[in-house]
């Protein structure tokens, strides 16, 4: 048991899992009447903090519904006077990325095409890995796992060029399959850790009982372990969907121009566009790109917290 990242991530996971999100757990001083000077200061600070966090979201939304003349008027706070959906349509269908003017929707679909196989593949591989590491240790399995976790701290830039060469050799460079492969590789440490810790938390006697019952590696995995893993699978899916959707580097390096994911196309629309910038279209495009992870965030709540606590290792 010598994997460096494990302990700390465990701390994070356990803390968030077991104690973090229970609402009755506050330790602070005794509850006091609502309107004491201290409380007013406390809430004021929190409200100011929230303004900082909410301001960009507000600006994005407001700007995306304004017309350009209204934007040039120069009031970033003001709500739209002349409410328009035009920027959204343009962002989706006809904004220019520097080369083509098809809007974000090809990027959206590219992202979807990358997302689904990457998420499934990386989750399946990691689940099997985690299960094997807990229940079917073989000589050296712990060492491989330690290196895997350690490897997750190596900057991607260090490994990216050899990977370009490898994918080129495999004939998949410049296709979505190269991106899928890379996502599977770099998703492996954290997801394996996640599944390994989860399977390790299940009673080992279940596994023993199944062995006595005569079940083998795959049978125990599919009939005993997997049906019990729903919570952790959901966490893994959340983690991977947001992580892969938000990826920029692998998309821009491995996908090839035709297959650029949404984040790359968004950046191209905003930063490489010719002519006078259309801020309303830019903001609509930005919201569109952020929408998928935001929706997942708001739906999943607690599980998201758990996912990112683990996923933060990925950087």
């Amino acid at each position: 048991m010598s994997n460096p990242a494990q302990l700390s991530t465990n701390v994070a996971l356990d803390a968030v899992d077991n104690k973090g999100m229970r609402l009755e757990g506050n330790h602070g001083p005794r509850p006091k009447p609502f309107f004491t000077p201290k409380r007013i200061v406390l809430y004021s600070i929190l409200f100011v903090a929230c303004l900082y966090y909410l301001f960009p979201l507000y600006v994005m939304v407001v700007t995306s519904f304004k017309t350009m003349p209204e934007i040039r008027f120069g009031n970033i706070f003001a709500p739209p006077i002349e409410f328009t959906g035009e920027p959204w349509v343009k962002a989706w269908t006809s904004a220019c990325t520097g080369l083509t003017c098809n809007g974000l929707n090809p990027g959206f679909w590219n992202s979807v095409k990358i997302l689904i196989p990457s998420v499934l593949l990386s989750t399946v591989v990691a689940a099997v890995n985690g299960y094997g590491l807990v229940n079917w240790k073989f000589k050296g399995s712990e060492i491989f796992f330690s290196i895997l976790i350690f490897g997750s701290f190596i900057p991607y830039q260090v490994m990216i060029y050899p990977l370009v060469m490898i994918t080129r050799e495999l004939g998949i460079y410049g296709s979505i399959w190269a991106v899928i492969l890379v996502h599977t590789i770099f998703g492996m440490p954290i997801l394996t850790l996640l599944f390994r810790n989860y399977f390790a938390s299940l009673p080992v006697e279940l596994f023993k009982a199944a062995r006595v019952d005569g079940a083998g590696f795959w049978r125990i995995f599919f009939e005993i372990m997997l049906p019990m893993s729903l919570p952790i699978i959901v966490v893994a899916l959340i983690l991977q969907v947001t992580g892969i959707w938000n990826d920029f580097l692998f998309g821009v390096v491995f996908a090839g121009t035709q297959n650029y994911p949404m984040t790359v196309q968004l950046n191209n629309i905003v930063n490489s566009a010719q002519g006078s910038p259309e801020y309303n279209v830019n903001m609509a495009a930005t919201i569109l790109t952020g929408l998928v992870p935001l929706i997942i965030y708001f739906i999943s709540g607690r599980l998201f917290v758990r996912g990112i606590a683990a996923g933060a290792v990925k950087g």
Partner: peptide, 29 residues
Amino acid sequence: FRTIMLYPFALSFIVTGLVWQWIMNPTLG
């Protein structure tokens, strides 16, 4: 409060960068 403080973490750095680029735009931001 927690939800509000954490939601930016769900976003891509590209999204974060572009929003702040707009907010910090010297003439119109």
